[in-house]
Nucleic acid binder design. Structure first.
Lengths: 205, 205
DNA sequence: TTGCTTACATACAAATATGAATGTATATTA
DNA sequence: TAATATACATTCATATTTGTATGTAAGCAA
């Protein structure tokens, strides 16, 4: 197989991305060599370098394939439609993200790589900034939703939407980390729905 | 300087550990070579290999120097003394840990390395297990404290101590991550106390 | 059909990293 | 004070990894 058609080349490219994800997961991003990725994809380094200029670019593509759609989905779930029940909407957003993890192994693996199999230095610290920016967006939207919940007297006591939003974001950030790290026992993953429910319930009037 | 006294050797050892922390922070654990550590410590690789058998051991020592005392301190803060105000005790525990970060640059740096400059694969996945075990311990103690808070009718509504404990742990885990990642702007760090206060307040009767 | 380009494989050169082996001067100890 | 162990520095052999350069057969356009 010396020269593939355009279609086949695209398949090869995707196989390389999938192989990279697999090896990143096993050996960590830094320890992974292009040779290992090539071997896992059943090609040589020549092919990998043909499709991607280096490991960093390959990493970025792998990440974006999963995260860009995921972020879109999260944005949708947080959209300010005229919802009767903002608190329920927040809950649905949290559950939706967990559901995305449950449904797609690729998403799960990518999350795991991003969280505990990647060192955010040099070129990669840029990625960290993007992530933080994204967090800011989510926090803002949460705050708006909490504000609307407050306007509708859904909240108990006199709670500040801004602090509620941050509290929820931190909770969820911690939740995702735990969810990802809890690979074998998985006794944690079964509790997530209840946890999210009680987290929201704590706020409800 | 070919042969130092025992005392000086101990100083050299510590200098190597400090140098390792510094280079780990800059380049990430994986990308850091023994040569770079040696250079940063002002010695040669010979000295580094004399004191530590390899990078993994050096990493472990660096980590334990900071974490073992920190864990002890956290355990102390969570101890079940006959406290009148369990909720305040939890709040003090959270604030205390943040304070430890504020007070010690070494602790801060080590946390940052552990969180975003280290890949938890192969030998390092053992470390991850230890961390998770520790979390379990903290969660259990939080649960006991929440139980006592409930017995004293400190809690509003009918909240489950077990879920409150997990919620607090996830919140705090997320908080630590944010705290560490928020290196430059530091606008987040100033809000931590207020955030912790409102997190606890949400539970209070 | 020819010629150019694509999609790789193979080969090469240079850099970097590791662990161990060896050297060595000085503390330490008997 | 002589012998030994210590605390390193230096050297060496060996991998490993990277990027690039070159080769090549087949696809594709004119």
């Amino acid at each position: 197989m010396v020269r593939q058609t355009k279609e086949n080349a695209e398949l090869t490219r995707q196989r390389i991305i999938d192989a990279a994800r697999q090896v990143f997961l096993e050996r960590g991003v830094s320890r992974t060599s292009m040779e290992q990725i090539a071997a896992a994809a059943g090609v040589t380094r020549g092919a990998v370098y043909w499709h991607f200029s280096n490991k960093t670019e390959l990493f970025s593509v792998m990440r974006e394939q999963v995260f860009l759609p995921l972020i879109d989905r999260m944005d949708d779930n947080l959209q300010l439609e005229n919802n009767e029940d903002p608190l329920a909407q927040i809950e649905a957003f949290l559950n939706g993200t967990i559901q995305a993890l449950n449904e797609s192994q690729t998403t799960r693996e990518t999350y795991e790589i991003m969280m505990i199999k990647c060192e955010y230095v040099e070129e990669f610290s840029e990625v960290l900034k993007q992530i933080l920016n994204n967090c800011d967006g989510i926090i803002q939207k949460l705050e708006q939703l909490y504000q609307r919940a407050k306007n509708k007297s859904q909240l108990s006591g006199s709670q500040d939407p801004s602090e509620l939003a941050l509290d929820t974001h931190l909770f969820f950030s911690g939740l995702l980390h735990m969810w990802v790290k809890d690979t074998d026992s998985s006794h944690f993953r079964k509790r997530t729905n209840a946890l999210i429910a009680s987290h929201i319930n704590l706020r409800r009037n």
